[in-house]
């Protein structure tokens, strides 16, 4: 069984029952297998990011299920959801979202420490990850001392911190120029080749090109579901 995540009739309605009701996700069923590189594309407001947030257990569906590793996460308590996010999911955001007070290596260490590992273990692991993204020489730089591309690479290293089952990236190249974007895309591709499962929400055709599976969304529905 190599399914990582699946959704069943996932429904998300904002302002339910009011005049400004919005159906962000309309009974979405997708399945993601181990080793997949999934690109979720579609116009703005089509529900791509909402779907990614659901997969990442950041948001609660109105109805339907998200099943990660055979666990129905909609049944879990807040703390259990937090644990799933920490142990099974890595996030990469458009705004990088590094913690400005912490250095590159401390940012990468954060999720490891949150999972209760001790300082020496977490810093050696974090250094290893910074090597993967080729930033070990920037380990003690603060986010504001790094370029956008470097910040995103730190964020990718952070997403790998607890060796997650899946990496969820929301427009990871959205704030970067095209040359830097290429580096990030290449990095994601390399990680996929190393066996990481990756789901990317993107407008970037170059990412979509690499994807092993494309999900096109329109008006909260999955339009086609290739492969």
């Amino acid at each position: 069984m190599n399914e990582v995540i699946r959704t069943e009739n996932l429904l998300k309605v904002y302002n339910e029952g009011m005049s400004n009701e919005v159906i962000a996700l309309d009974r979405v069923n997708i399945k993601i297998k181990k080793g997949d590189f999934v690109a979720i594309t579609g116009p703005s407001g089509s529900g791509k990011s909402t779907l990614l947030h659901m997969l990442g257990v950041l948001d609660k569906p109105t109805s339907g299920k998200v099943i990660i590793d055979d666990i129905d996460v909609s049944e879990l308590s807040d703390d259990e959801k937090t644990e799933i996010r920490r142990e099974k999911i890595g996030f990469v955001f458009q705004q990088f979202n590094l913690i400005p007070l912490l250095t590159a290596i401390e940012n990468v260490e954060m999720p490891i420490q949150l999972s209760g590992k001790d300082k020496t273990k977490s810093s050696s692991r974090a250094l290893e990850l910074l090597k993967i993204v080729n930033l070990e020489n920037r380990r003690d730089h603060f986010p504001n001392q790094l370029s956008g591309g470097q910040q995103q690479r730190v964020a990718i290293a952070r997403s790998l911190a607890n060796d997650p089952n899946i990496i969820l990236a929301d427009e990871p190249t959205g704030n970067l120029d095209s040359k830097t974007s290429q580096e990030i895309v290449k990095l994601l591709k390399d990680l996929n080749l190393k066996g990481y499962t990756i789901v990317v929400v993107t407008h970037d055709a170059s990412i979509a090109k690499f994807a092993s599976k494309k999900v096109y969304m329109r008006d909260g529905k999955v339009d086609n579901h290739e492969k």
Binding site: G56, L58, D78, D79, T82, E83, R85, R86, E87, F91, N97, I99, P100, M110, P111, L114, S115, R158, N162
Partner: peptide, 12 residues
């Protein structure tokens, strides 16, 4: 930042 911490797995 608190949102990031929680997304990364910081409990309440």
């Amino acid at each position: 930042e608190i949102g990031i911490l929680k997304a990364l797995g910081a409990t309440n």
